[in-house]
């Protein structure tokens, strides 16, 4: 199975990054928890290991902060599921966090690349 073969290459998510990934995923439209997990795994080309327990706690946390909202609905294949969608506040946060993340990775990149050149 795909998920098992490249087990060693998978990275546990950094604290806080999961929130950002969830927000990004939901930007495409309302989705249930299982769909979010699948989507993150697929889009990261199976690099990220999404712990499902953490995912649901994170969803709950975002909901408490009113960045996302949830309601029960029916999936494409007629299953009952809880659908999450972005709020206006969540959209704002996504922009802000994405900016932060870009600055962080850029700074990290600068340092690491410089170090690589010196080495």
């Amino acid at each position: 199975m795909a998920t098992q073969t490249n087990n060693d290459d998978r990275i546990a998510l950094l604290q806080g990054t999961l929130d950002l990934l969830i927000l990004k995923t939901l930007l495409l439209g309302p989705c249930h928890g299982q769909g979010v997990a699948r989507s993150i795994q697929r889009q990261s080309e199976d690099v990220f290991l999404v712990d499902h327990g953490s995912l649901y706690v994170a969803l709950q946390r975002l909901e408490d902060k009113k960045w996302i909202q949830a309601r029960w609905g029916v999936s494409d294949n007629n299953r009952k599921a809880r659908f999450y969608s972005l709020t206006a506040k969540g959209r704002e946060q996504l922009t802000e966090k994405t900016g932060e993340w870009r600055r962080l990775t850029r700074a990290m990149g600068l340092i690491l690349d410089a170090a690589a050149e010196e080495a």
Binding site: G33, Q34, A37, Y56, Q60, R79, K80, R82
Partner: peptide
């Protein structure tokens, strides 16, 4: 406040969706 039952329900739904997909 969201009840623990509601949360359990959501997990059940997650598993069902995953089974369908697999």
């Amino acid at each position: 406040k969201r009840s623990a039952d509601d949360f359990a329900e959501e997990i059940k739904a997650h598993l069902a969706l995953e089974v369908d997909e697999l």
